[in-house]
Amino acid sequence: MAVVFQKPKSLTDAPLHYCPGCTHGIIHRLVAEAIDELQIEGKTIGVAPVGCAVMAYDYFACDMVEAAHGRAPAVATGLKRALPENIIFTYQGDGDLASIGMAETVHAATRNENITVIFVNNAIYGMTGGQMAPTSLPGQVTQTSPYGRDTATVGFPIRVSEMLATLDGPEFIQRVAVNNVKNVNAAKKAIKKAFQNQIEGKGFSLIEVVSSCPTNWGMTPKKALEWVEEKMIPYYPLGVYKDRSANKEEK
C-alpha cells in the first residue's frame, strides 16, 4: 500500500503531551519537516525551552538540550560556537523568549548568531496555567490579569519581530501563523528558510509563529483559531520584518 502521509523522521514516536487543539503539534511537525527536507537531522541540535514545549527534547529525534527558562539563545550560542558545522535551533514560547529571556534574545540577534529561533507566541503562559504573558493582548483576561490586561499598570504587549527588526544584526525575521492551511503552508516555507539561512551561514533567523492556547484562553479549539484571526493577527501582523540578504540583492 502506498504511504501518502507519514510522521517526519525528525520526530520521535513519543506521544505529544499537548492539549487538544494546541498548535504546538503543528509547529513541531513543520520544524521536523524542514529538517527532513534539508537532510540535516544528523547534524541538528535543538534547544528546548521552559514552558509548554519543555518536553520538546523527547519529541525531536535529533540531539537535544534542555535550557533554563529564557536562556535558550545563550545555550544555542555556546552550541554553535562549539560546533559551527552543526545546525542549532531553539524552540521557545513567549514567556521564555520575550520576558525572562529577552536579553538573551536581543543579544543573540544583534550578534547575528548563526542559529534558527522558532518563537511560538500564544499570548499566554500555558504550562503554569494561563498567566499574563509579555504578548498578552490589551484587555486579555488571564489568571494574573483577571480583569483584563490593563495597559495603564502593566504596559503593552511586546511585538518581538518588529522590535528585533530594528537591529542591524539579525538576518531574517518573519511572523507567521498556523490558524489555517494557507498560513500553515506559509509558516512551513518561512521555517525552512530560517534553517536554510543557517546552512548558508547567513546568521540569526527568527520565525514568530502566532499560535493558540484553547485551554488557557478558555475556548474551543475552533473558537481559538478564530480569535487568532480576529484579535491576534491584527495586533501581530504577519509578514517578513527583515530579510537582509533579499534587501541586498534588490540593491
Binding site: 545563550a74 545555550v75 555556546g78
Partner: peptide, 13 residues
C-alpha cells in the same frame, strides 16, 4: 547569566 548558559551549551558538546 548568558555567559554561564553559553558554557552550558559548549559543555553539552
Amino acid at each position: 547569566i548568558a555567559a554561564i548558559n553559553m558554557v552550558y551549551g559548549v559543555a553539552g558538546t
